[in-house]
């Protein structure tokens, strides 16, 4: 599994990086920590590039490097990587890999599991390129800032998207898994099983009767889902909740829930203009939400 963790400012990216690294560690996956720098006007892009080269020559930090240095220090403090004299951050090399992508290479770096990279430009375009080029399975991003970003990420990025909202290290989390009979829901179940196994988390499976579905049909879905977890020896509880789908799930989710949802099967054009249920849930919930693809 490959994980991409997108970080922004230092302090508000802490929960994102913390949870992201925990997931990466439990899945033993290779991880890319990406900082996307500000988009530069075409008028000034070459001037900015010349200035940045000049800063590198003078051993002055170019913009964005400080954020990556902060991420590096964080990883060391949490012992995700081991710092040696040979791979201190002050001894870094910034390697231009392709257009708009730069990799921080720590001299003498031992681990090839964690990459620190910097991209410059429009955030959705850059993260999409990163996922497409390096085939990441999950993109993890903070829940703050512009909500439109989350919608566009879910819409355009070819990986599952984990929006880390209101995450606290000290809380004991449980998975909240809303299910129905869609293909997206099946993928969410698979992911939830993997998460629950790796993290040893309890799972709460919920379903809301939608459209012409009878209570019996919904209960059948719940039962079938529960069996899948039981086979993997994961503790679950099931609940049938009533009301409008989005609001019912949002109200049911607590601060200690990690909501795992499947991507909507809706037409992409309709989703772009009118949104979708998983997107609305992700936007309204005040807890981490993973939309699987």
């Amino acid at each position: 599994m490959k994980i991409l963790i997108a970080i922004g400012g230092r302090e508000f990216s802490k929960p994102t990086l913390d949870l992201g690294m925990k997931i990466a560690n439990s899945f033993k996956s290779s991880t890319t920590i990406a900082y996307v720098g500000k988009k530069i006007s075409q008028f000034s892009e070459k001037d900015v590039s010349v200035v940045h080269q000049n800063l590198d020559d003078r051993e002055l930090y170019r913009p964005g490097i400080r954020t990556l240095e902060w991420a590096y220090d964080f990883l060391i403090s949490k012992k995700y990587i081991e710092e040696k004299d040979s791979n201190k951050f002050d001894d870094y090399l910034l390697v231009d890999e392709e257009n708009s992508r730069m990799k921080v290479l720590l001299k003498g770096q031992q681990s090839d599991k964690i990459d620190l990279i910097m991209r410059t430009g429009e955030i959705i375009e850059q993260l999409k390129n990163e996922v497409e080029t390096n085939k990441h399975d999950i993109t993890i991003i903070g829940g703050g800032g512009n909500k439109g970003i989350h919608q566009k990420l879910v819409q355009f990025i070819d990986s599952s998207v984990f929006v880390v909202k209101n995450y606290s290290v000290s809380k004991k989390y449980k998975i909240l898994l809303p299910v129905n009979d869609s293909k997206g829901s099946d993928m969410a179940i698979e992911t939830a099983i993997n998460f629950a196994k790796s993290y040893k988390l309890n799972v709460e499976i919920v379903s809301v009767p939608e459209g012409k579905k009878s209570i019996e049909e919904v209960e059948k879905i719940l039962k079938k889902t529960k069996e899948k977890f039981s086979k993997n020896r994961i503790k679950t509880s099931t609940k049938l909740i009533d009301g409008p789908t989005v609001n019912s799930i949002v109200n049911y989710a607590k601060d200690d829930s990690i909501v795992i949802l499947g991507v909507s099967p809706k037409n992409p054009i309709m989703k772009y203009f009118f949104g979708s249920k998983p997107l609305s849930i992700a936007q309204k919930c005040n807890c981490p939400v993973l939309i699987t693809k």
């Binding site: 720098g37 500000k38 530069i40 006007s41 008028f43 000034s44 001037d47 900015v48 200035v51 940045h52 913009p63 964005g64 400080r66």
Partner: peptide, 8 residues
């Protein structure tokens, strides 16, 4: 202006 802004 853009270069100053790009320093973050």
């Amino acid at each position: 202006a853009m270069i100053i802004y790009s320093t973050g």
